[in-house]
Design a protein around this nucleic acid. Structure first.
Lengths: 188, 188
DNA sequence: TCCGGTTGTCAACGCGTGATGACATATGCA
DNA sequence: TGCATATGTCATCACGCGTTGACAACCGGA
């Protein structure tokens, strides 16, 4: 970040992609309202007006981010049999605002914002439908929603205190419970 | 709402309380940034400048709301043996932004806002400590955090689509799983 | 009755936001 | 080389926000 300032070649597609990427990271870490066009532009090393030109409005940019994130959701990367342990470990020991939960983070941050929520609502099924299919089994959609719900909730809970402030044994307890519960939802 | 306009008696304590109440409801339903002084004042039927006079700044108002809400948290009202079923029913069938989860809703809405999060972080233990004591048993604090996490997460999940759009059987499935899981956390 | 303080209103300020249109500069083709 | 267009920048606008200080209305005690 920052070295883009020197000698960026004039390439519309590349800078458009860079803007989309920077916006994704911002929307994962901050509220819809909180993400500023000038911030995103600053990350890329570009003037804020360019975003308006490429994406139209802020809402359009957010929509583009959702479309882009929804495609390759990394929740479904990896072995199904290991899902619970993987996510539990990510939640308890992983760095906030990183890792395999990009899409969930965006939903989380923006769900309470009316403008973003209206957009999210449309895009939400684009995420849950394939995820439910991946989950499979009886009542797949319900279990998918429960999974994303629990993951998001613990994400909030962790963020509030900036990471779980537990000792090693407590972390193990939490991690184990989470792994069992999440895996139980996967297995049906 | 609105009838307060006529003939409110000039009573500082009462209007101060009314402002606090209106602000609480706003902070349960909207993000910290999104809640406007003019909105809160409008709910009470009062000028926005009065809030600044009574509470100082917006942050101070938010802090006052947290203190006020934290006192009588309704999560702990009712029978412990019935906690799971009660909360599950509330989540699946209850109206959004109402019911027994006021404090959780505020945490949820405001966790992603830097200003509010800083305040929340301080006030968070004021909530979790007594709740953990109410939960009791081994690793009470971990289980309390898991409980609030799951509750918040499903709250977000529900909000995103404006209520769970499931048929009756699916709602029952979800409700049953939630009741079991939450009660399991309570019982240890 | 009049006066002092409490309670509430009003207009305005400074700030930051998203968005716009005019302008500058690099690129690629003839 | 020279021009047309793509690419990016800049100054600026209108708006909404939290906050402030001056003003108005009301009440209670002398």
């Amino acid at each position: 970040m920052g070295f883009e300032l020197c000698s960026r070649p004039r390439n519309a597609a590349a800078t458009r992609a860079a803007i989309l990427d920077a916006a994704s990271r911002r929307f994962m870490a901050e509220t819809y309202e909180q993400v500023g066009m000038r911030d995103v532009a600053g990350d890329v090393g570009v003037d804020a007006a360019l975003i308006s030109r490429y994406f139209g409005s802020k809402e359009d940019l957010f929509l583009a981010v959702l479309d882009n994130c929804g495609k390759g959701s990394d929740l479904m990367d990896g072995d199904r049999a290991d899902f619970g342990r993987r996510m539990a470990h990510e939640l308890v020991y992983g760095e906030p605002n990183e890792g395999k939960m990009g899409w969930l983070l965006i939903m989380l941050r923006s769900a309470s914002s009316p403008k973003a929520a209206a957009i999210l609502k449309l895009s939400s099924n684009n995420f849950h439908a394939p995820f439910a299919e991946w989950v499979g089994g009886r009542n797949a959609l319900v279990r998918a929603r429960l999974l994303t719900g629990v993951l998001m909730g613990l994400g909030v809970s962790r963020d509030i205190s900036g990471g779980f402030d537990f000792d090693a044994e407590e972390c193990e307890t939490m991690c184990a419970w989470l792994a069992d519960t999440l895996q139980g939802l996967i297995d049906g």
